[in-house]
Design a protein around this nucleic acid. Sequence first.
DNA 1: CATTTGACGCCAA
DNA 2: TTTGGCGCCAAAT
Length: 86
Amino acid sequence: MISFKQKVFSVVRGILAGEVLTYKEVAKRAGNEKAARAVGAILRTNFDPKIPCHRVVKSDGTIGGYNRGVSEKRRKLRRENAMVGK
DNA sequence: CATTTGACGCCAA
DNA sequence: TTTGGCGCCAAAT
């Protein structure tokens, strides 16, 4: 039985370089659009380099958080995407 | 099983 | 535009 959490990881793992999803989008793809907050909690407790969790940002365009520091996240996004938003 | 937690989202002021 | 407050949810305790 795959948990919501597993689903979230599958989705995030599938994000292509240059693609950025919001927590809400990830939640929707994982099966529950209203679980954006839970997605953050999940990505927070489970760090895994195979998962490009730095490509997940907030709906309002701000960067959100990151286990290894927001600066690091911003830097990675900047390398992959050209613009990160605000 | 009951509570707490927090990388969120949205709206009113 | 910036803040504050409330709702929502899966996980962790």
